[in-house]
Amino acid sequence: KEHLTIQPYVKHPLQNRWTLWFFKNDKSKPWQANLRLVTKFDTVEDFWALYNHIQLASRLMSGCDYSLFKDGIEPMWEDNRNKCGGRWLITLSKQQRMLELDQFWLETLLCLIGEAFDDYSNEVCGGVINVRAKGDKIAIWTRDTENQEAVLHIGKTYKERLGLPVKIVIGYQAHADTATKSGLGIKNKFVV
């Protein structure tokens, strides 16, 4: 008698459970009321089920954000795991929305869920994409601006993964500076 065994389908677990957040700008409401938790996942397959289902960033309305953060960390400066941290910031020109925005954001997500920064991945809190008429932004947030070794490793690896040319410089800014200054007043704490 032939015996048919059915292999149970096992999903690939991620190192971390992640939460996707969506922000839709409604100026009549306070900032926090516009922020929605979409869902949580902790396997590769569930990540793709989500990603394949939601709108591409390039098709979101201006003023919207996606954020992907480790479970338990809220996508805001005030969260305890973020308040001493900062972000590696990628600023895109309007022309780049068509060509590179979705590609860069997907690469950012794959870096996060795949733990692309080796042992320094513990320092990562999450990633954010801001879709804005004046120019889109993508960032990876880390938890401690003082951990120079980790911040630099994450920045170098991230730049490589995005395939950015050596001559393009990306900057790391402390949330404490972003929260209190604006635009040109924000100094880069590190660059790679």
């Binding site: 190192q15 793709w48 394949n52 794959l110 869920i113 795949g114």
Partner: peptide
């Protein structure tokens, strides 16, 4: 402890698996 790391190639291959 050990960390579960997935490279880009592996993650992309999983995109359309069942």
């Amino acid at each position: 402890g050990t960390r579960i790391i997935y490279d880009r190639k592996f993650l992309m291959e999983c995109r359309h698996s069942p």
